Simulated scan of single mutants.
Amino acid sequence: MLTLGGALAGTGTGPGANPNSGGDTAGALTTALSEALGDVDRSLVLTGVFGIAGAGSAGRPAAVSAARRAWHACGLRGSPAVVTDIAVAFAAGTTAQKGIVVFSGTGAGAAVISDGAIVRRADGYGWLVGDEGSAVWLGREAVRAALAALDGRSRPTLLTESVPRALLGQAVLSELGAATPRHQCTQHRPAATPAPALAFAGAAVNGTSLGAGGTTTLAREPASRVPQNPALAQAIIKEVYGRPPAALGRLGPVVAAAAAAGDAVARRITEEAAEWLLRDVDAVRAALTDPSAPVVMHGSVLRDGPVADAVRAGLRVRFDADPRRAGDGAVGAASLAIRRLGFPPPE
């Protein structure tokens, strides 16, 4: 929540709001908005902006309806503006009205933004048919790699230990008699030079940043096979299919940690993620009329770690300048709301 002068007046968080990944949009927005408002006098709230995945296309009616339900449930006057989460991601990194944003959180993609509208976009199509390079994509690839190693289709990887531990917990692993065997991670070999939302919502009185293709080719040489454990594999499958797809995003840091430790399979996954994200940027950059316009990196995957490092390096090469790191998406949405009232956005 921001004052007209840009001072922080309240914050709130809620569960995942992306309906394409199993989130309850209205419920999540209501939870976050209510927490952000606290005991603030509702009559002082002038307007709001929600950035919602899918709000710029066929999903817009549902997104607008969810935002209005949350707004009115919190006792606020009027109706909030609804924009795409992609526009909010850009506003979270710059006060400029035009530029490029590349994002990777629950969803992933890139877009050219102008005055809060998407001029051109690449990906951001949801976990089922897109979002390559997102936290959910990283999680899915990690599970695939772990299962392939567990049933003997592929080489051992640190992911056969860290993925079951993250998904099931040590207590369940012990019950299964599945203390995953420790082994030396497969050494990373440098790959060829790479070729490369996030679901959050915000309100003018703030809101919340909510953290939301391709296949990895795994080596098949028979190097120190992991003992097969059908019960463990089935427990992983039960956990994965028993939760919304967005839950796979929690494995993003697991992949990053394994890659940082030198695991070849995890490194291959993070490198491919960066390639997808940079490919998204290449697909939209022709629509950027001002070559000096800012480039913003947004989302949990692009804060730090191997994917963020690779994407940042690729953007430097492409634009001969350092990309900007986005801050809180909710603050970006609040800045857009302030701008809609005719005030300059806070620096």
Rank of each mutant, 00 (worst) to 15 (best):
T180H: 01
H183A: 14
A266Y: 00
P346W: 14
G133R: 01
R268Q: 10
P156K: 03
E347M: 04
P15C: 00
V82W: 08
F343E: 13
E275H: 11
G38E: 07
A235H: 08
I86H: 12
L278R: 05
G5M: 13
G93Q: 13
E35T: 15
A81E: 14
G214P: 07
H183W: 10
R325W: 11
I237Y: 05
G78N: 04
V101W: 04
G177A: 03
D24E: 06
G48T: 12
V307H: 07
A87F: 08
T215K: 15
G177S: 03
R144F: 03
F343G: 01
A117D: 12
R69D: 15
V284Y: 08
F103I: 15
A330P: 04
L46V: 15
V172D: 12
G5H: 12
A247P: 02
R325D: 15
I86V: 15
N18K: 01
V119A: 05
V45L: 09
A247L: 10
A91F: 07
R316H: 15
A231G: 00
A179W: 01
P222A: 06
F90A: 03
G27R: 03
A274K: 01
L198Y: 03
R77Q: 12
R267A: 11
A330D: 07
T193W: 03
T94L: 03
A148W: 00
I113L: 00
R279A: 15
L44V: 12
G139P: 05
C74P: 01
A212Q: 05
A246N: 05
D24T: 00
L37P: 04
V82Q: 06
G51D: 01
A261D: 15
G299Y: 02
D304R: 13
A66C: 08
R121Y: 11
L210G: 09
A260V: 14
G130A: 13
V163W: 00
T95L: 04
Q184F: 12
V295A: 13
A334C: 03
P15F: 00
F50K: 05
V101G: 14
R225W: 13
A192T: 07
E141A: 15
T3K: 14
I237M: 11
L8R: 11
G105C: 13
L232W: 11
G109S: 02
P346R: 02
H188Y: 10
S79R: 13
D85W: 02
V136M: 06
G211A: 11
T84F: 08
V265G: 05
R42M: 01
A7M: 14
G14E: 01
A73W: 09
T160H: 15
